[in-house]
Computed example of a mutant assay.
Amino acid sequence: MTNTATSIEDLARTSAESEMAHVVRLAKERGLDAEEICLLAEVLARSGSILSQAGRITADLASTGAPTSLSTLLCPLYLCGFGIAVPKLGVPGRPAGGIDVLAQIPGYRYRLDPREVHAIIDRCG
C-alpha cells in the first residue's frame, strides 16, 4: 500500500479535516494513480449519508464547476426521462454547480434535513 493510500484509509477512519488536508497535499506533491483515485472516490462516497432508492436505478452527473454548467441542470432531466432516479444533492460552499446555481434563485431552498430529502424523493423521484 502506498503512503497516499494509507493516508486515504486514515481519512476513511477519522473523517478529520487534517487527514483530508494531508491527502490533498500528497495529491498535489505526487499526484494520484488510478487505484488511489478509486480508493479516494469510494471513501468520499461512503463519508456521508446514503439514500436508498429501494432497487431503483439512480444516477447523477458531477458538475464541471463552471458557473454556466448547464449539463448539471439538464442531464438529470434526460436521465429522469429514461426512468432513472436522480436525487440531486449538493454540498453548500463547494465549487459552483447546479445546486449552487439554483440557490441563487430567491426563495430556492437548498438546505434540507434528511426527513425533507426523503419526502421530496418519495414525492418526485
Score class of each variant (00 low, 15 high):
residue 41 A to W: 11
residue 94 R to L: 10
residue 110 Y to D: 12
residue 7 S to Q: 07
residue 9 E to S: 04
residue 88 K to M: 03
residue 1 M to C: 01
residue 52 S to Q: 04
residue 120 I to H: 11
residue 56 R to P: 05
residue 33 D to F: 00
residue 93 G to P: 15
residue 61 L to C: 03
residue 94 R to C: 15
residue 22 H to W: 01
residue 96 A to I: 10
residue 52 S to M: 02
residue 69 S to N: 14
residue 79 L to I: 00
residue 28 K to A: 04
residue 69 S to Q: 08
residue 17 E to L: 09
residue 11 L to W: 09
residue 125 G to M: 08
residue 37 I to H: 05
residue 5 A to G: 06
residue 104 Q to W: 03
residue 16 A to Q: 04
residue 83 G to I: 05
residue 6 T to Q: 11
residue 1 M to R: 01
residue 30 R to Y: 08
residue 47 S to Y: 00
residue 85 A to N: 13
residue 59 A to R: 09
residue 57 I to W: 10
residue 125 G to H: 11
residue 72 T to Y: 07
residue 43 V to G: 06
residue 19 E to Y: 10
residue 47 S to L: 03
residue 13 R to T: 08
residue 74 L to T: 07
residue 77 L to Q: 15
residue 49 S to N: 11
residue 71 S to Y: 11
residue 45 A to F: 13
residue 102 L to T: 04
residue 52 S to A: 01
residue 69 S to T: 10
residue 125 G to V: 08
residue 91 V to T: 15
residue 115 R to N: 14
residue 24 V to H: 04
residue 46 R to W: 11
residue 113 D to N: 15
residue 67 P to G: 11
residue 113 D to A: 14
residue 97 G to Q: 07
residue 73 L to S: 03
residue 20 M to T: 14
residue 19 E to Q: 13
residue 122 D to E: 09
residue 120 I to G: 09
residue 68 T to S: 15
residue 72 T to C: 10
residue 5 A to E: 02
residue 116 E to F: 05
residue 61 L to E: 00
residue 61 L to D: 01
residue 15 S to C: 14
residue 16 A to L: 07
residue 42 E to N: 11
residue 8 I to S: 05
residue 81 G to F: 13
residue 28 K to R: 12
residue 125 G to I: 10
residue 100 D to L: 05
residue 122 D to G: 06
residue 105 I to A: 04
residue 105 I to Y: 03
residue 122 D to T: 06
residue 47 S to K: 01
residue 27 A to S: 05
residue 74 L to G: 00
residue 62 A to R: 02
residue 56 R to A: 04
residue 10 D to A: 13
residue 74 L to R: 01
residue 5 A to T: 04
residue 47 S to T: 01
residue 36 E to I: 01
residue 45 A to C: 12
residue 122 D to P: 05
residue 18 S to D: 03
residue 16 A to I: 06
residue 118 H to F: 14
residue 22 H to V: 01
residue 46 R to F: 08
residue 20 M to K: 15
residue 115 R to K: 14
residue 110 Y to T: 13
residue 110 Y to L: 06
residue 81 G to W: 10
residue 57 I to N: 11
residue 2 T to N: 12
residue 27 A to E: 02
residue 25 R to M: 00
residue 70 L to M: 14
residue 4 T to Y: 02
residue 25 R to F: 06
residue 95 P to T: 14
residue 23 V to C: 00
residue 112 L to P: 07
residue 55 G to T: 06
residue 45 A to Y: 12
residue 74 L to I: 08
residue 85 A to Y: 13
residue 119 A to T: 09
residue 17 E to D: 13
residue 89 L to A: 08
residue 108 Y to F: 13
residue 75 C to S: 14
residue 87 P to S: 03
residue 101 V to T: 14
residue 27 A to R: 05
residue 10 D to P: 07
residue 20 M to A: 15
residue 43 V to P: 08
residue 15 S to F: 14
residue 75 C to R: 10
residue 122 D to I: 02
residue 81 G to R: 15
residue 66 A to F: 08
residue 27 A to W: 04
residue 119 A to R: 12
residue 19 E to I: 03
residue 18 S to F: 00
residue 60 D to R: 05
residue 35 E to L: 05
residue 75 C to W: 14
residue 57 I to P: 07
residue 115 R to C: 09
residue 84 I to N: 03
residue 17 E to H: 09
residue 17 E to M: 11
residue 42 E to K: 15
residue 34 A to R: 07
residue 67 P to D: 08
